[in-house]
């Protein structure tokens, strides 16, 4: 019956609104991370040394790129499970072409081509053929990772050109590493696109309600395809960084379980797997939380499985927070 459902009762509760705004903001995970690091610093002062924080930050850059790309897909209500595979395959493609033409620009071109190609393929399958994003990206993930292993005979491709390594990781520009510049540029551009452009606004609309977005003149299919393309490119650039850092391209640069860090960072930062929510700022905070948890627990001499367990619990809590945030929103 439409008669009953059509009339929504206006709700108005100031305290409710305040609590709601608090759980929705990026401040909550940030405060949590600060409190946690502060507490750990009491026991283990090494946490707060400049050297440690720098290491944590640098190590988290590829994760940051991948999570920002993932955010675009989450905003339109999709999911991209191909992060690790695309990163590995992009690095392998670059390594192979640079064997023939040892030129950094060619390598970067190969990285971008793989990311864009796989991303657009995802977009086409999800938006054009209406296939579930979950399955599509999982399937290409397997195919792409397999292809990369086959192309390299599961060997590492060392001997990457100096220019490529410098551009991707440790080059110095105005006293700051090239990888930091790249990540900062991606973060700033992504933030501006999502928060300050018509395109970004339309991405959120698609995630909130694709049918309404379509009636309101949003080219829904093209926006979904674009989101997957961004995610693919970001994952590929993350692969470039990882390869440059370890001075070798390989199909398994990243273990597939990095996906949990990527999705966890996005969700901790306020993105919703149900679409239409999340900010770049939030993702930055989420990545910081994930990175600091891992780092602090390691410094406390906990074993790697303890770190994995803690992360799992944390992401579970973040998913619960997501439910709390959007409770009452959806039908």
């Amino acid at each position: 019956m439409t008669a009953g459902a059509g009339v929504g009762e206006p709700r108005n509760s100031r305290t409710g609104d305040l609590a709601r705004r608090l759980v929705r903001s990026e401040a909550l995970p940030l405060a949590f991370a600060a409190a946690w690091v502060g507490a750990v610093a009491v026991v283990e002062p090494a946490v707060l040394t400049r050297r440690n924080l720098e290491n944590v930050g640098l190590a988290a850059l590829p994760l940051l790129l991948a999570a920002v790309g993932q955010l675009f897909v989450l905003v339109v209500g999709g999911i991209d499970l191909s992060t690790a595979a695309v990163a590995g395959a992009a690095s392998v493609a670059a390594g192979l072409v640079m064997r023939e033409v040892p030129n950094a620009a060619v390598g970067v071109g190969a990285v971008l081509a793989v990311g864009l190609g796989v991303g657009l393929f995802h977009g086409l399958a999800v938006a054009g053929l209406r296939m579930p994003a979950f399955l599509v990206t999982l399937a290409t993930s397997s195919a792409v990772a397999g292809g990369a292993v086959w192309a390299t005979r599961s060997q590492k491709l060392a001997g990457l050109p100096e220019g490529f390594l410098s551009l991707g990781w440790q080059g110095d520009l105005f006293g700051v590493r090239s990888s930091v510049w790249v990540a900062a540029a991606v973060v700033v551009v992504a933030h501006l696109v999502l928060a300050r452009t018509v395109f970004g606004r339309q991405l959120y609309a698609v995630g909130l309600n694709a049918a309404t977005a379509r009636v309101s003149g949003v080219p829904v299919g093209r926006r979904i395809a674009a989101a997957f393309a961004v995610s693919g490119v970001c994952a590929a650039v993350a692969g470039l960084m990882l390869a440059a850092r370890q001075k070798a391209a390989a199909a398994d640069l990243w273990r597939a379980d990095v996906l949990l860090d990527v999705l966890g960072a996005a969700v901790i930062g306020g993105a919703s797997l149900r679409g239409g929510r999340g900010t770049v700022l939030g993702v930055v905070v989420g990545v910081a939380v994930i990175a600091l948890i891992g780092n602090t627990l390691t410094l406390l001499d906990l074993d790697s499985w303890h770190v994995t367990m803690a992360k799992g619990g944390l992401i579970f809590l973040a998913a619960g927070l997501d439910i709390l945030r959007t409770r009452g929103d959806r039908r």
């Binding site: 606004r201 339309q202 959120y204 049918a211 309404t212 379509r214 309101s216 003149g217 959007t326 929103d329």
Partner: peptide
């Protein structure tokens, strides 16, 4: 609810959606 409104967007975003381009 089905295809008229973005129920969970801020009203500014919802009302401006069709005019965005």
């Amino acid at each position: 609810r089905g295809d008229g409104l973005l129920m969970d967007a801020a009203l500014t975003d919802e009302v401006s959606l069709a005019a965005l381009p």
